[in-house]
């Protein structure tokens, strides 16, 4: 059976994008170990509401690790201490009695804070709109089995496609680079014959958009890969580089 723990939460509170933020401390008592991190915040929010204060704003939705909405930077790690898990999949049994747990929003010029721990990640949509697709309209496509695709390729494409677009890679990167996110989509589509047709156009467009939106350059620290909740590999970044350099030399 899980033990109950008590600890101090230091949470970043910030009214709006332009306003100054600060840490506020909250003491949490007797939290069961099988409470998820977000449920623990629910408990805190319930407390705050009952005291007539405004609850802490944070993004969350599916709470099963797939929607990519949750985005907390806990004790120096995007999505907290576990590997291969999102914030919503962290359970309090990972922490200890008497801990000080610091919770911050994603910090990157590309992700301005909206309020408290909620940030604006629309930049990712813009990168996707720039080219993260295969240009097919609905209908008029060949039979699904018309093009055999080697299982290894399909599996590798799936590894890349597992990206949930949460932005942990950007949050973890000391350069605020979105390379892992961009490369995951570029890789997925470059690996599949359907996507190869416009691979060059895609990689150039997506990368240009990433640069334009103010994300940094990759310096291969691998922090993104280490913190990615879906363990997306930096070999995708190498593939993106290869594709990009190849496309530029072709021009």
């Amino acid at each position: 059976m899980d033990k109950n723990i008590s600890f101090t939460l230091k949470v970043w509170r910030q009214r709006g994008p332009k306003e100054k933020g600060e840490f506020k401390s909250y003491y949490m008592e007797d939290i069961p170990g099988d409470t998820s991190f977000l449920e623990m915040l629910d408990i805190l929010n319930e407390m705050l509401i009952n005291r007539g204060e405004e609850p802490i704003v944070f993004d969350h939705d599916c709470r099963e690790g797939i929607c990519g909405m949750c985005s907390l930077y806990i004790n120096g790690h995007p999505h907290g201490p576990a590997t291969g898990a999102t914030t919503c999949q962290i359970y309090m049994r990972r922490f200890h009695d008497g801990d000080i747990i610091t919770v911050e929003p994603w910090r990157s010029a590309g992700f301005p804070v909206i309020r408290d721990l909620m940030v604006d990640r629309r930049a990712f949509d813009k990168i996707m709109a720039a080219g993260g697709y295969v240009s097919v309209n609905t209908g008029g496509v060949p039979d699904a089995n018309a093009i055999p695709i080697p299982k290894e390729k399909a599996d590798e494409a799936m590894d890349a496609a597992a990206c949930i677009g949460c932005g942990a890679c950007v949050a973890a990167c000391k350069n605020g680079s979105a390379m892992l996110f961009v490369s995951a989509k570029v890789s997925q589509l470059a690996l599949l014959p359907q996507g190869k047709v416009e691979a060059k156009r895609r990689v150039k467009a997506m990368l240009a958009k990433m640069d334009e939106l103010g994300f940094g350059a990759c310096t291969n620290t691998r922090a993104c890969e280490a913190e990615c909740p879906k363990c997306v590999s930096i070999s995708n970044i190498a593939r993106l580089n290869r594709q990009f350099i190849g496309a530029k030399f072709k021009d």
Partner: peptide, 12 residues
């Protein structure tokens, strides 16, 4: 890259 990191830094 520093610019991309944003003005606010992580506390931890």
């Amino acid at each position: 890259n520093r610019k991309a990191r944003g003005a606010e830094r992580y506390a931890v």
